[in-house]
């Protein structure tokens, strides 16, 4: 059952060629669980992939505890250097000084070094660069969306040059006001794939926690040109050890 529900529908919806994944959530329906699932998948034993987690929201122990329940030992992966954890809760740090652009450039150089050493090693799989979350990065940059976008652009170049996967979490409701275009609109342009978590449109339910929309924006160079569906909608229920995904009404 876990295998069936544990991200199967999500995996089906996510097209293999997507390189920039933007996960949008809101207060009523947090999508952190999507990040956990993607992190678990990136580190899954068969694939041999790696991950670099830029954590602004939570400390390592938080992810470790959650992923352990999902059957993935982050501490072990960290020791074997398949997971690189950047603890950025104090980013950019008071002591370092200098402009935020420099801090972001330094952060990028650290990420790039990780990617390069990963590719130089014996690893066959893909490296996933994950940012949790971009809204906090913008806060750290004193609200300067341009600097954050520069940083993200460099991360995007990693995906095309070094075959990485970039996963970014952003809180959509922060940007819902009409104060022009923020980070969110730019991110939606950058993204190949948008995963959007929202509360149930029909109201609260005991056994459904929300609905997930997956939009494949379609890459310019498609992996499968004749690919059919681009937009997927389904419900989810978050559990201790993963999440269930199912189509509306298909649950007994």
């Amino acid at each position: 059952m876990e295998e069936y529900g544990g991200g199967d529908l999500l995996g089906e919806a996510m097209c293999a060629g997507a390189r920039v994944v933007v996960v949008e959530d809101c207060v009523e329906a947090p999508a952190a669980f999507v990040l956990h699932l993607l992190l678990k998948r990136a580190l899954a034993a068969g694939g041999g992939g790696g991950a670099a987690l830029l954590a602004l929201a939570h400390p390592f122990s938080h992810y470790d505890r959650i992923l352990r329940k999902m059957g993935c030992n982050l501490s072990m992966h960290r020791k074997s250097e398949r997971l690189h954890f950047f603890d950025l809760q104090a980013f950019p740090g008071g002591t370092r000084g200098g402009a935020i652009a420099d801090s972001l450039a330094q952060l990028y150089s650290a990420v790039q070094r990780v990617v390069e050493t990963y590719r130089a090693g014996e690893n066959a799989g893909r490296l996933t660069v994950m940012i949790d979350d971009v809204s906090l990065l913008e806060v750290a940059a004193n609200g300067s969306a341009d600097d954050v976008l520069d940083f993200l652009h460099y991360c995007v170049t990693l995906t095309s040059e070094m075959n990485c996967l970039l996963v970014v979490l952003i809180h959509e409701d922060i940007y819902s006001s009409e104060d022009g275009v923020g980070l969110l609109a730019h991110l939606r342009y950058i993204a190949d794939l948008v995963i959007k978590a929202a509360p149930l449109s029909t109201g609260l339910a005991a056994d459904v926690h929300g609905q997930l929309s997956v939009v494949n924006k379609g890459m310019l160079i498609e992996q499968r040109p004749a690919k059919g569906q681009k937009v997927w909608n389904f419900h989810f229920k978050v559990k201790e050890n993963g999440a269930d995904f199912f189509y509306p009404g298909s649950r007994h």
Binding site: S201, S213, V215, Q229, K230, N233
Partner: peptide, 8 residues
Amino acid sequence: RGDMSFLE
């Protein structure tokens, strides 16, 4: 929210 059918 939630209605993205026209995007398809």
